[in-house]
């Protein structure tokens, strides 16, 4: 019984990681209208894993997603890879934290906005520390704030739709209480 449940979890997480990898790869390839701008659709998967399983699982799925996704696109271990990895992990940590303490006040939209904000801040900080030590780089901050709102709202709505439509909530409940 116990082994069975573990198998189920592994398969489920692997599937979610696969979906996240594809979303990630597609977004890497699609040239977005505004430079730096990514919707972060794969973040919806992170949020689902956080809700269904928890922080360690979510971090693992993020790491897998960036690894497999970068492998698909051909950016493995290039600067972009480290940006995506640190951004994804930061986003998962923040969203998990808010989910644990602030789910009473924040909905999925707010949580994913905070996640997008964490991702953008970490990446901007990384660019600043590693490459362009110019205070002018920080003048991109308002743009990043605005993009976080837009991307976070869309991802939040997507996550909510996925949870409702796919019956994942019920599935997660069964998994947790089984």
């Amino acid at each position: 019984m116990k082994g069975n449940r573990l198998n189920r979890k592994l398969v489920h997480l692997a599937l979610l990681a696969a979906v996240a990898s594809i979303l990630f790869a597609v977004e890497e390839l699609a040239s977005m209208p505004i430079p730096f701008f990514r919707l972060g659709l794969a973040n919806a998967v992170t949020l689902l894993v956080l809700i269904g399983y928890g922080m360690p699982e979510a971090l693992a799925v993020v790491a897998l997603r960036v690894l497999v996704g970068s492998l698909l696109v051909g950016t493995l271990f290039q600067p972009n890879f480290f940006f995506s990895l640190s951004g994804g992990l930061a986003s998962a940590l923040v969203m998990g934290g808010v989910l644990a303490v602030g789910a009473r006040w924040f909905g999925l939209i707010g949580i994913s906005i905070l996640g997008a904000l964490a991702k953008n801040s970490v990446q901007l900080l990384l660019a600043y520390v590693l490459w362009v030590r110019q205070s002018r780089l920080l003048s991109l901050l308002p743009l990043f704030l605005l993009l976080s709102i837009v991307a976070g709202t869309l991802v939040g709505l997507l996550t909510s739709a996925l949870l409702k439509k796919s019956g994942l909530i019920r599935f997660f409940r069964e998994t947790r209480s089984a």
Binding site: W105, F106, I109, G110
Partner: peptide, 9 residues
Amino acid sequence: EIKAFRIGD
């Protein structure tokens, strides 16, 4: 309970 939207958002 997880909602799509709450006042904090």
